[in-house]
């Protein structure tokens, strides 16, 4: 996804402006010149200036490409788009459900989704989606003692 320099610059300048507006609410330390707002303020001001410069540079581009948002060649193939979007979508699914479903179920479901979307056949995909998280459970939960969430499986593993 190619965002033109004008649009990109405007976005950065906007981010800088929001931060500038927000840091005004930071408390000042009595008797001190430099508080919590100084550094973020300077950085945000820099973002505003650089964003405007980038925008202007984009406007000056002869072909007018600075003002557009263009998609690459691969974005015309729906299969490839689904593959690409599956990466953030799967991660988002894990983030939202892992506390409730638990690591094993959430990771297996996400992995099965990725494997199928990437074109692995069903049977090997199911096998890998079950085995790999189980292997990771051994490595991280048993060996490295990372408290992976059990979620739904908690009642199965620790019945009481």
């Amino acid at each position: 996804m190619k965002i033109g320099d004008t649009v990109l610059g405007a976005l950065f300048a906007l981010l800088g402006a929001i931060v500038l507006w927000h840091v005004r609410t930071f408390p000042v330390i009595p008797g001190q010149k430099f508080g919590a707002a100084l550094f973020p303020g300077v950085i945000a001001a820099g973002l505003v200036v650089c964003g405007i410069l980038l925008s202007v540079r984009g406007l000056r581009q002869a072909d007018g490409g600075g003002r557009t948002i263009a998609f690459d060649e691969w974005a015309r193939d729906p299969v490839v788009v689904v593959r690409f979007l599956s990466v953030p979508a799967g991660l988002l699914f894990y983030i939202l459900t892992s506390n409730f479903l638990g690591f094993h179920i959430a990771a297996s479901v996400a992995m099965l989704g990725w494997l199928l979307v990437f074109g692995v056949r069903l049977l090997p995909a199911v096998a890998l989606a079950i085995c790999f998280p189980a292997l990771m459970h051994l490595a991280f939960y048993k060996l490295l003692r990372v408290p992976l969430p059990w979620g739904l499986l908690e009642k199965v593993v620790f019945p009481s």
């Binding site: 990466v87 799967g90 991660l91 894990y94 983030i95 892992s98 506390n99 990771a107 996400a110 992995m111 990725w114 494997l115 990437f118 074109g119 692995v120 090997p124 890998l128 989606a129 790999f132 998280p133 990771m136 991280f140 490295l144 990372v146 408290p147 992976l148």
Partner: peptide, 27 residues
């Protein structure tokens, strides 16, 4: 096959980002 490798890497990333604070915010 890379199509099988990439999902494994993603699960590994999830674990790495989670393990630092044991929090889903890391992911």
């Amino acid at each position: 096959p890379r199509k099988a490798l990439l999902p494994c890497i993603l699960v590994f990333c999830i674990l790495g980002a989670f393990a630092i604070n044991n929090s889903v915010v890391g992911i």
